[in-house]
């Protein structure tokens, strides 16, 4: 048990890193209504750029900025595939992801680069969790403030409306190709930032570290919404905070499941199934629970209940 409790700070740290990543996913998936698979590659791009910059003696702030810019460029590539070349969004993301596999290998020069906290002066590390958690919290809050501002501006609103209604946006003079590209650029910049943080946390950048990242990001978005959605009241900043909380919960569950003794090999499958299940819920709701029949059934039930109540009341009064 003590073992388990002592592993929770690590879970929280990782949770915030993936929560930041999930904010990137939120921007494409929820705001732009695009499932962007670029992130599986761009998270590694962020890690790779940060690792190589630090290893080559560059200061941390520069390494982080370079990571974000590299991530933004990956989003730009997907955006150009999608808008200028007319390729469906999912396929555009997959293409960029494959491109990034080669690019990331070229950046790192190998499949793995170690980034030891004992050797380099890192911003966060699993060897110093207290400091890491504080820094990550501040980073997440700063990011949410900037995004809250941006999506409240005239231009940010036009990005939101692009995802909400493409037709209306064009009719109102919004260049929806441009807003889509900007959305993808911002999203992947954030994802690359989380990659840079993740590489420092785990002490290495690895070509495989992005595998299934989109699923974890979606899981964080979905879990956050399911557990804390009632908190939001349509406030955008709260929605983003909830996404980060979703990431933390995901990693606490992850740690718990491992502690219980579940085969770690199965975790990716379970994550995917969890996401599939949650994605199905709104569909099922629409299909099986909102039909005319069901509405009638529910109305009937309610009437019966009301009748029973009235009958009971009558009895009481008579008595």
């Amino acid at each position: 048990m003590i073992n388990y409790l002592s592993s929770l700070p690590a879970a929280c740290t990782q949770g915030i890193i993936w929560g930041i990543m999930a904010i990137g996913v939120y921007i494409t998936y929820k705001i732009l209504d695009i499932a962007d698979l670029t992130v599986d590659g761009s998270i590694c791009t962020g890690a790779a750029v940060c690792a190589m910059m630090v290893i080559n003696g560059q200061p941390m702030w520069l390494a982080l900025i370079a990571s974000v810019i590299a991530g933004m460029l990956t989003g730009l590539v997907t955006g150009i595939f999608h808008t200028f070349m007319g390729i469906p969004a999912i396929l555009s993301g997959i293409l960029t992801q494959l491109i990034l596999w080669s690019v990331n290998l070229k950046i790192m020069g190998a499949a793995n680069q170690s980034l030891s906290a004992t050797k380099y002066n890192l911003l966060i590390s699993r060897l110093n969790l207290d400091r890491s958690i504080i820094i990550l919290q501040l980073l997440a809050i700063a990011l949410i403030i900037v995004l809250y501002w941006f999506f409240g501006t005239e231009f940010g609103s036009s990005v939101r409306s692009t995802g909400a209604n493409l037709n209306m946006s064009r009719a109102q003079g919004i260049n929806t190709s441009f807003t889509k590209i900007i959305g993808l650029v911002i999203s992947n910049g954030i994802v690359a930032l989380s990659g840079a943080l993740l590489a420092q946390y785990q002490g290495n950048a690895d070509i495989n570290m992005g595998k299934g990242a989109i699923v974890i990001g979606l899981a964080a978005v979905i879990i956050g919404e399911a557990l804390f959605g009632w908190l939001c009241r349509n406030n955008f900043a709260l929605k983003l905070i909830v996404v980060v909380l979703g990431g933390i919960v995901y990693y606490i569950v992850y740690t718990t499941v491992i502690y219980i003794g579940l085969d770690a090999d199965l975790l990716k499958m379970l994550s995917a199934l969890l996401v599939a299940l949650f994605l199905a819920v709104p569909y099922w709701k629409g299909k099986y629970f909102s039909g005319v029949k069901n509405v009638e059934k529910r109305a009937l039930k309610q009437e019966k209940k009301a009748a029973k109540k009235a009958a009971r009341k009558n009895k009481k009064e008579v008595a």
Partner: peptide, 25 residues
């Protein structure tokens, strides 16, 4: 836009033909 507020929809329409800046929406 169904997922946006009535006033947000109007604000977007009020900027039709204008350059959309980083001023508050």
């Amino acid at each position: 836009a169904a997922t946006m507020e009535i006033q947000e929809n109007l604000a977007i329409a009020a900027r039709r033909g204008n350059h959309r800046t980083l001023r508050w929406g």
